[in-house]
Amino acid sequence: MTGKLYEMTANLGGFVTGIFAAALSLFSIAMRTFRGVFRFRGRAQGEVLKQMYLIGNRSLIFVTVTLGALGMVLVFQVCLQINKITGDQSQVGPEFIKGMIHAFVPILTAMMLATRVGAGIAAETGSMVVTEQIDALRMTGVDPVDFILVPRFIASVVMTFVLGVYAMVIVIVAGAFMAHSSFGVNYNVFFVFDKVTGGDLFIGSLKLIVHGGAIPIVAGYCGLTTGRGSEGVGNATTRAVINSSLAVIIIDFIISGVGLLTVQKI
């Protein structure tokens, strides 16, 4: 009995210390990344551009297809409901555009990038860990965070924002197309931007920037803590996908909540 109790307490203790250790290590990686960004002197400019290409350009088709399809689906569902209730489709466009800017596009784009970019960063850094490249970096006196994460962080923040703006255009165009073709909403009725406030633009942009920063930090943390052995890299990649997606959802929730109580309060 006491043995079992002891074991349970030990397990619980191990679990709690594990969480704290993980949080501490994640925090340390985040701080080292921020510090690295401020000390960034453009020596690694080439690396940043390369990462921008990998994160941005290589995600273009992915984002176009996924966000385009989602935009059409969302408009479809909204119009379907409105048809059942009032049948007045004139407000669909303006409200849809507003909702996309401050809510849906940031979270959906970030979720898609968490999948693509987060997994990619973790797979890459994880591979570097198991092939002992990270140890080799340390031996030459280079902080792996500076070398690997800082360029990816900068590239991800910039490109998530750019892709978010691009996704906005795609979603709105796809939505307008759906509203027009399936529900006969005129384009000039749909493309009305006067419902969009400065607060919406601010919240949308803030979300994109924070998501763009969170993904490489969480994924980099998962990659750098890769375990040894053949299943290490796979596990790290798995953790990166799930943890960065969850980070996006929780961050989105917090910014939405704070935004509702402050800048979007009417």
């Binding site: 297809v65 989602l70 693509r116 990619g120 797979a123 052995g229 053949s230 796979g234 990649t237």
Partner: peptide
């Protein structure tokens, strides 16, 4: 090898996301 596993996981989640949305 292990590097290939990481890459495969990356591909799998991207393909699944595309498949889900489409």
């Amino acid at each position: 090898g292990a590097v290939g596993v990481g890459r495969a996981v990356n591909n799998a989640v991207v393909t699944a996301a595309l498949g889900i949305v489409i």
